[in-house]
Every structure is written in C-alpha cells, then in structure tokens.
C-alpha cells in the first residue's frame, strides 16, 4: 500500500466543498511521499532577542487599554512523542473585541480599536510552554455563503524544530454556537475538532484581572507517524 502521512482521520482534506475557495486552490494530483532528508529535518532558529514584552502582551501595544474581555492564553507545544518543544516561535493574530482586523482589506462596519493591533509573538520556554495576554476576539461576517459568520478565533503559526513541523492553525472557543455553521472549522474531521478548541481553565485566570484559556498544540515530529498502511492510531 502507498505510504502516506496525510492522516485523513485527523487532518482536513484540501478540497472541502462547503468552504468554497478550496475549489480553485486545492491540489488534485496525489502528493508524492517524500522520505525525510536534511532538507526536511532542519528548520530556522529564532533568537530570544526577536521578542519584546509588547509582543506577548497584546493589551499594551497602544497608548491605552483595548476594549474587550481580557484573557490569558497559555499552553504547551509538544511533538507527537510528547517531547516539549522549547524555543519555538509562536505567532498569533486576531480581530479586536468587535470582530475587526487591523488590516486594510477588512472593511466591514465594526469599529477599529485605537489601542489594539491584534498580533503578537512568543517563544516557548524550556518546557514548551507559551503564554500571552490579549482580549477575546469577536465574530465577523465573510462572503462564503449568505449570512456567513466566522466564530471568534485566534490564528496560530508555529515553527517547531524542522521544516516538517511548520504549522498554521486557528484556535476556537469551546461552546461557541457559530462553530456548527462555519465550514472552516467544520473541514476538520469530527474526532479532531476538540483539539482546536481552547478550554476555559479557572487555574489560568487571574483574580479581578483576566480570564484564562488553555490551548495545547502537538506538532509533527521527524517521521513519527508514517506507517505502511496510511497512518497509525
């Protein structure tokens, strides 16, 4: 049987009809299975000096405090063997509390917040842990279908130790009623959806200051999952 690392039980397909823009962009030819070489086993290294205090506190990037619900997002980044991934660059971006991005192409009539940029970055510590402070993002409309709304989410971009582990995803909130109607979230197989939902964690909250949400991430390791029959359970 053809070797594959695609893991269709846990990863979205390229082509997902309800998410309309996949139709003209999803590759149709079979992907070529690539045995890992140095090219796949290496990756860029990022220095601590890249990160400033404002990068990990999205509530301190303007002259004053942004509007919205303050929240801490914390989690661990590990590989598929559970090894913590230290010094991994985590980049995040999101809307403000009203659901508007600070982006020239986002022009729906929700207010911009002069005190909120909505992007941050952190490096994981020696235990693979990251943490940042922000405000809860809002939902916003998009053109996929009539009355389409994206549920509140934060975009995550991570590097990990190699070209193989490079990874982009979105973090959603458990219990958000819009998840059911969002084809971007729904393109993820059912059994894997819970892994992109942040969990409210009372232990992460700070009394009289901020809510706390936990979001752990598992990155691809060097050839950890392939097997002769497609994927391992």
């Amino acid at each position: 049987m053809q070797k594959s690392r695609l893991d269709p039980d846990n990863q979205p397909p390229y082509l997902y009809e309800p998410y309309h823009s996949t139709a003209k962009r999803a590759p149709r030819q079979p992907l070529i299975f690539l045995p890992h070489t140095l090219s796949e086993r290496t990756g860029p290294i990022f220095a601590d000096t890249l990160i400033t205090e404002a990068d990990r506190d999205l509530t301190r990037q303007g002259a004053g405090e942004p509007l919205g619900q303050r929240m801490i997002v914390e989690g661990r980044v590990v590989d598929e063997d559970g090894n913590p991934l230290p010094k991994t660059l985590v980049e995040v971006w999101q809307t403000n509390a009203a659901g508007r991005y600070r982006h020239e192409l986002d022009d729906w009539p929700a207010p911009l917040d002069p005190n909120f940029n909505g992007c941050g970055r952190v490096l994981t510590d020696e235990n693979g842990k990251y943490r940042f402070l922000t405000v809860k993002p809002g939902a916003y409309p998009w053109g996929n279908h009539p009355n389409a709304w994206r549920p509140a989410h934060i975009h995550f971009s991570l590097f990990g130790p190699s070209f193989v582990s490079r990874f982009i995803t979105q973090m959603y909130f458990e219990g958000d009623p819009m998840l059911e109607y969002d084809p971007v979230f729904q393109c993820v197989p059912d059994r894997a959806k819970h892994r992109i939902l942040a969990k409210f964690d009372l232990g992460l909250t700070e009394e009289r200051f901020a809510l706390g949400f936990r979001f752990d991430l598992v990155l691809r390791g060097p050839d950890a999952t392939p097997s002769e029959n497609g994927h391992e359970e």
Partner: peptide, 8 residues
C-alpha cells in the same frame, strides 16, 4: 498526542 489539525 495526535498532531493538531491544520487550518487555513
């Protein structure tokens, strides 16, 4: 320890 799902 499943690889977290990718998103666009």
């Amino acid at each position: 320890l499943h690889h977290t799902a990718n998103q666009p």
